[in-house]
Simulated assay, not measured.
Amino acid sequence: MTSLTQGTWVLVADSEKALFLENTTDAQNPNLQVRRKDEQENPSDREQSANRPGRFNDGPSVHRSAVDDTDWHELAKERFAKDLSDKLYEMAHRGDFEKLVLVAAPEVLGELRKNLHKEVSDCVIGEISKNLTGHEIGKIEEMVKDALRHS
């Protein structure tokens, strides 16, 4: 059983927002304090892409095929997860935390896992595959405490 001891950090993230929280009390009654908040502007793909998909010739015939435009919105989400992993590395390297819990939407958690440096992954004591960025801190405290108790 893992617990949210004093000094444990909790990253709560989705594809556009991240809260870096630190438990300032014990595992029985965690008190998560916001240490950092990051947010990314990520308009819908429609607002970021070209007007029409590109086209190319299929060879000597008269057929032309549409080419999908780059999904800028999705790329920005992946880039945000990569940026988060880099920030976590900097923080771990500075000694900001020794224990870390990752709480993120499933696709973000997957991207984070792919990009975490060993120095950070060695600090991870738990992962929760849920998007809790829209919840109040008190609710996050309870959900993290319960999830770690049952891990």
Score class of each variant (00 low, 15 high):
residue 49 S to Q: 15
residue 35 R to M: 12
residue 24 T to N: 00
residue 82 K to A: 15
residue 54 G to I: 00
residue 77 K to D: 03
residue 66 A to T: 13
residue 44 S to T: 15
residue 113 R to K: 13
residue 101 V to A: 06
residue 112 L to A: 10
residue 34 V to I: 15
residue 115 N to Q: 13
residue 98 E to R: 13
residue 87 K to V: 05
residue 74 E to K: 13
residue 94 R to G: 00
residue 55 R to P: 08
residue 29 N to V: 01
residue 76 A to P: 01
residue 91 M to S: 12
residue 49 S to E: 14
residue 54 G to Y: 13
residue 88 L to V: 06
residue 35 R to L: 03
residue 92 A to N: 06
residue 79 R to L: 08
residue 24 T to K: 02
residue 95 G to I: 05
residue 48 Q to Y: 08
residue 81 A to E: 09
residue 96 D to Q: 09
residue 49 S to P: 03
residue 65 S to L: 11
residue 36 R to H: 14
residue 67 V to I: 14
residue 110 G to Q: 08
residue 27 A to G: 04
residue 67 V to S: 10
residue 69 D to A: 14
residue 63 H to C: 04
residue 75 L to F: 10
residue 20 F to Q: 04
residue 77 K to L: 08
residue 79 R to I: 05
residue 114 K to E: 12
residue 104 A to D: 09
residue 27 A to W: 01
residue 75 L to R: 14
residue 78 E to H: 10
residue 68 D to V: 03
residue 108 V to N: 09
residue 26 D to E: 11
residue 102 L to N: 09
residue 92 A to K: 08
residue 94 R to N: 07
residue 45 D to V: 04
residue 111 E to W: 02
residue 46 R to Y: 08
residue 37 K to C: 01
residue 118 K to G: 11
residue 109 L to Y: 03
residue 29 N to E: 09
residue 36 R to E: 13
residue 58 D to H: 12
residue 46 R to E: 13
residue 119 E to F: 01
residue 100 L to S: 04
residue 116 L to E: 04
residue 112 L to V: 11
residue 52 R to T: 09
residue 108 V to F: 05
residue 100 L to D: 06
residue 47 E to L: 12
residue 79 R to F: 03
residue 106 P to M: 03
residue 121 S to Y: 01
residue 64 R to G: 06
residue 112 L to N: 09
residue 79 R to P: 02
residue 47 E to I: 01
residue 66 A to R: 11
residue 47 E to G: 02
residue 82 K to I: 12
residue 43 P to L: 11
residue 25 T to P: 02
residue 19 L to G: 05
residue 72 W to S: 08
